[in-house]
Design a protein around this nucleic acid. Structure first.
Length: 565
RNA sequence: CGGGACGUAGCGCAGCUUGGAAGCGCACCCGCUUGGGGUGUGGGGGGUCGGCGGUUCAAAUCCGCCCGUCCCGACCA
């Protein structure tokens, strides 16, 4: 491709609308443009990178024996009503009516449709296992789209679905997809980690997320270097690494703490570490029952864990008025002692001597509270987020934490959809049985954003070899070298994706643009060529420069491709 | 959904407080210049000032409503 014939509208300045680096660079590199909030155009360069990712995914999926199909983006409500998700999915599901006033939605995912396909035409265990997938547009009407294509409303996703006759079959399909995902992200050139994850709105019980490691990631991962345990922190059991001293219980004492509300304020006021303070949070279960959750001041409640204590029930935090009504005190002065509602104490309070609690009376706290003698919780449970200093739930080594961007998520669905949609096959024992399903997603457009989030410097994007829209850039700095540059460009184009910067621009412009769009190898016809007919090869990632005779270029690129990737 | 901010040329912004001829930089077009990190210079084109309504002799500027966009929050009591 010649730059002059391509549409690459690069920007010199950061657009005001972009906050995170991948969003800024995607816009500046002329790869995407916003059409509406969370809805983007992919311009030629962005589209090309996207197609590279798609093809990597496609290749590996095909190798794993999955079959590519394409399902509709617009779906009838009837299917969604069958599984109950028409009501359960919430506002993320964008609904509308057609001219005949029939309900439709834009597909946020395709479990219903795939199950419909399979229940109609797969009748026998002999046709199993079956893995179908597509690479297609999805629409989720996110509460708050942000970060460009990282959390867009409309996005490209690869979604695959497996159908097995039994649970062992599902285990095998799941394992196969797990390994395929590892191959895909490795081939993409990404640093990633697979972690145990929460299943969320899709359902099922076992799931893993594939996380691209990046400081700007929205998720926190806990992992153990020793045994390999890794999970999304929202799922990690919290095992305190700290050993509590066996200091004797001191007498409970009510203290005047005017105007101090947050745990930190209380700690500062009393001259104690914030860990010695506890906070008590009031939750409303199913809009009727209130419960109190008591936790150390330096810990955070993990609502997912809380949710599991009340399966199937809705819950939310109480607001200030409700708290006053239930407790008789303002937020900030609530404590577990003498509460008339159910009290859940976090496990980390067990054996913790002499801590501070709210007195359920404005402007007062108790010091030297102890679990058991001061108050008896109705339940002691792990309800906090694991954090620095906690131990691996498998091998008890200290956990490590890092941030990541979720680019893939695989689930063992089981029979959630096949049962509710009556998707049955005839097994070898003559019984009709529901398919055992799995589903496997990759956010293709998000992979592009995550790649940039992980691979950039102050000059722009640094594309990994296999995702780069072009692998090689040829640029000549003087018109005199046009012919030679053309020759090299045509030559290398036979094996690789090459872009020729044939614009009549100053060298600085060409360099800046090429660095910005992140092409891994730049072949420069400039001073070195003028002097001794050697081209300069600049490696985008390291900034390293090599000087080669044009006839040696092909060998060099071959070697580079093999060793670096 | 709650809070905050913004909306002026393709992009980045100033002007608004205190109403009185719509500006700057980049980009774009033409000329010269320059040619290894967004060259310098001269000239030029481009605007329903987000929309509607109001106040006023006069509105980008003041007031009201609406639309759009971004940020923070939607669990830390």
């Amino acid at each position: 491709m010649r730059w002059s014939k391509c549409f690459i509208p690069t920007l010199r300045e950061d657009p005001a609308e972009a906050e995170v680096i991948s969003h800024k660079l995607l816009l500046r590199a002329g790869m995407i443009r916003k059409l509406a909030s969370g809805i983007y155009n992919f311009l030629p360069l962005g589209f090309k990178a996207l197609k590279k990712i798609e093809n990597i995914v496609r290749n590996e999926m095909n190798k794993a024996g999955a079959l590519e199909i394409l399902m509709p983006f617009v779906q009838p409500a009837e299917l969604w009503k069958e599984t109950g998700r028409w009501d359960d999915y919430g506002k993320e599901l964008l609904r509308f009516k057609d001219r005949k006033e029939h309900d439709f939605c834009l597909a946020p995912t395709h479990e219903e449709v795939i199950t419909e396909i399979v229940r109609k035409d797969v009748k026998s265990y002999k046709e199993l296992p079956l893995i179908l997938y597509q690479i297609a547009v999805k629409f989720r009407d996110e509460i708050r789209p942000r970060f460009g294509i990282m959390r867009a409303r409309e996005f490209i996703m690869k979604d695959a679905y497996s159908f097995d006759a039994d649970w062992e079959g599902l285990d095998k399909s799941y394992q196969k997809m797990y390994e395929t995902y590892e191959k895909i992200f490795t081939y993409c050139g990404l640093k990633f980690k697979a972690v145990e994850a929460h299943t969320g709105a899709i359902g099922g019980d076992v799931s893993h997320e594939f996380m691209v490691l990046a400081e700007t990631g929205e998720d926190v991962l806990a992992f153990c270097e020793k045994c390999g345990y890794a999970s999304n922190v929202e799922l990690t059991p919290a095992i305190l690494g700290e050993k509590y001293s066996s200091e004797p219980e001191k007498p409970l004492e009510k203290v005047y703490t005017p105007g101090v509300r947050t745990a930190q304020e209380v700690a500062d006021f009393l001259g104690l570490p914030v860990s010695k303070i506890t906070k008590t949070l009031i939750y409303i279960i199913n809009e009727k029952e209130a419960v109190a959750v008591c936790i150390r001041g330096d810990h955070e409640v993990n609502e997912l864990k809380l949710e599991k204590l009340f399966p199937g029930k809705t819950f939310r935090m109480a607001n200030e008025q409700e708290i006053k009504k239930i407790v008789g005190a303002s937020p900030g002065f609530i404590g577990p002692k003498d509460l008339k509602i159910k009290v859940i104490a976090d496990k980390a309070l067990e054996g913790y001597p002499n801590f501070v609690i709210g007195a359920n009376e404005d402007e007062y706290h108790y010091i030297n509270a102890n679990l058991g003698s001061t108050f008896k919780p109705d339940l002691i449970a792990d309800v906090r987020k694991a954090s620095e200093g906690d131990l691996c739930p498998k091998c008890k080594n200290p956990l490590q934490f890092t941030r990541g961007i979720e680019v893939g998520h695989i689930f063992k669905l089981g029979t959630k959809y096949s049962k509710s949609m009556k998707a049955l096959f005839l097994d070898r024992d003559g019984q009709m049985k529901p398919f055992i399903m799995g589903c496997y997603g990759i956010g293709v457009s998000r992979v592009l954003a995550a790649t940039i989030e992980q691979n950039h410097d102050e000059n722009g994007i640094i594309f990994p070899w296999h995702i780069a829209p072009f692998q090689i850039a040829v640029l000549y700095l003087k018109k005199d070298f046009e012919e030679e540059a053309e020759k090299i460009y045509r030559n290398l184009s036979q094996k690789w994706d090459v872009i020729l910067d044939d614009r009549d621009e100053r060298p600085g412009v060409k360099f800046k643009d090429m660095d910005l769009i992140g092409i891994p190898l730049q072949i420069i016809f400039g001073k070195s060529y003028e002097k001794n007919k050697e081209v300069e090869v600049k490696i985008r990632k390291t900034g390293e420069r090599k000087y080669l005779k044009p006839e040696n270029l092909e060998n060099f690129v071959n070697e580079f491709e093999n060793e670096k990737n």
